[in-house]
Design a protein around this nucleic acid. Structure first.
Lengths: 133, 133
DNA sequence: CTGCATCCTTACCGATACTG
DNA sequence: CAGTATCGGTAAGGATGCAG
């Protein structure tokens, strides 16, 4: 994402006082455009590359490749490639990946619960602030 | 952030089956560079603009202004301006803002717990994939 | 089918100067 | 003190074509 520290240890200041609790890295992962969608889909079970691609409308092949690779790099997703022709690759959540997926689900629940309230707040704001984003 | 749908209702597909659960909007907010830091600081109590600025090293005035304004727009933060000279403005979390701050804290807890595991996974990955980000 | 390489547009964000 | 206005670097991500 836009922050991209790359190294998990390179944070000047975290939100937890003055020590780095690592949340920046997690947000750099799940905060990007496609990661949550991939994780939720993989939360339903093992998926092949093409299945993910069809299950997530709008994602490009390039972004699906990058997203799955980053998830693999962080140990959240496991990749299994069978040397067949044509190639066949399976993706599945690791235990730690499933635990993060659970957090994401809770966030999704929160979103569902407060979605309308936020929409209302924005409408209220926007009428009082024309020409604002 | 990079996604920026602006409208809370303009999502083709959410992670929850085929309906939009609004998580995209939440991630667009807390996924950006500074929002979590501001929320956690406000979680400690009422803060003035300058106090936030000093409490969050590295943030520019511009970004602090944008971040607080977006939080206000979503109804997560309340802004109180006193017409004194010099001006004085207070920011505090709304009830819904506090509830989101709680979710963020849980995510921070998760990060602390799994930080080392992720760092290890990255190291493992990087040794096997030189020249990769 | 699964990926990689390249070009290109968008917009996030930092730096700086200015206002009431 | 609490913003606003403007400029510019940079990285994310979309489109397209090629490869094993």
């Amino acid at each position: 994402m836009s922050v991209a520290h790359t190294e998990i240890t390179s944070q000047a200041n975290g939100p937890c006082g003055d020590d780095d609790c690592g949340i920046r890295d997690v947000l750099d992962r799940i905060g990007d455009k496609w990661t949550v969608l991939v994780m939720v889909e993989l939360g339903k079970g093992v998926r092949r590359f093409r299945e993910l691609h069809r299950a997530i409308p709008g994602i490009s092949q390039r972004m699906l490749t990058l997203t799955t690779r980053r998830l693999c790099r962080d140990g959240l997703v496991e990749r299994t490639a069978y040397p067949t022709i044509p190639p066949q690759v399976e993706y599945r959540l690791t235990p730690i990946g499933r635990s993060l997926a659970k957090m994401v689900e809770e966030l999704a629940d929160w979103s569902r619960t407060h979605k309308d309230a936020i929409a209302d707040a924005r409408e209220q704001w926007d009428v009082g602030h024309p020409g604002d984003g």
